[in-house]
Design a protein around this nucleic acid. Structure first.
Lengths: 165, 165
DNA sequence: CTAAATGCAAACTCTTTGCAGATCC
DNA sequence: GGATCTGCAAAGAGTTTGCATTTAG
């Protein structure tokens, strides 16, 4: 009764589906590990984020999802993205120019350095900053960033509080 | 018929008023030079931007203005700020986090570098990016930036268009 | 079965716009 | 005097929220 065209083969198929599998598993693991449920809208948003080549607005993301057959409400997409952000799975940015927020998968490799001129401490920071810079340049300047080196020197919170203003 | 309490003294007064004078003159010159009128709302917004120590939302800016006795409509503040932005007098930023845009005077010294890995060209860019980074760090991390060094390497627009994708 | 998540619609925030009347030059 | 600006109020985007219904575990 088994039908090859409907069931997944035992050997890994062509790359895209295999990757999709891995992504799906990653999502489910993260959700479950944090006590959240695995639902259709969440899978759909996750898949759309992976398919997207650019940072998408919530509206675009939703369109992407319905285009693939699924049907998710805007509100659910918003809620799902907020959750993903909490879980460190996705990230929003909006750099000065644009009105609507744009979403992307969170890449843990984006970081920058904060150097304190008082105590000499160097802080490695992961955050939306570098992603935001990339986006800004790509959209506003037509520049394709490969490496973003951001070093900010100044006074860290601790030294501000200790020292005289 | 001349009255000292109403006319400006011939010698420069205490510093703050003198600075305010200079600011006012700068605004008027810029406006007139570009064929715009000098109006009360524009003066008020300009003064408020100078008084502000931080980047303010339109709402805060308006409150600041009414607090000083003047009375300006929100819509006019929006229109005025748009004009100031066009004239290079003010700048808005909004870094990922915040919802409402925040305004500040435009400081021409904020710049960063774009290095093209293909043609080797180094572009000095003035823009809202550095200001946005400062704001982000100050508000989100309690870090007081003194120097922001941003170097982005990648492919410039020209090389992207010329070369193979 | 029950808590959690979704869809729908209404509410909210920030910003823009149309227009009549006020203002600058 | 005439084009430019302003204030007011209404409309627009983008996002959030309340609540009844559905769904995952």
């Amino acid at each position: 009764m088994r039908n090859d065209t409907e069931e997944q083969p035992r050997t890994p198929p062509r790359t895209p589906p295999a990757a999709a599998e891995a992504h799906r598993a990653e999502l489910e693991a993260t959700l479950r590990a944090n006590g959240h449920r695995v639902t259709e809208p969440r899978r759909a948003v996750w898949a759309a984020l992976h398919r997207a080549s650019e940072h998408l607005t919530v509206e675009e993301l939703t369109a992407e999802i319905t285009a693939v057959g699924a049907d998710v409400d805007l509100a659910s997409v918003y809620r799902t993205l907020d959750l993903f952000e909490q879980l460190g799975l996705a990230r929003m940015s909006r750099l000065g120019d644009t009105d609507a927020g744009r979403w992307e998968l969170a890449h843990p490799d984006e970081h920058f350095h904060l150097v304190c001129l008082v105590c000499g401490n160097v802080d490695h920071h992961v955050g939306s900053l570098v992603a935001g810079i990339r986006e800004h340049l790509e959209q506003g300047h037509g520049f394709e960033p490969e490496r973003v080196e951001l070093v900010v020197s100044g006074r860290c919170r601790r030294c501000r509080e200790d020292g005289q203003t």
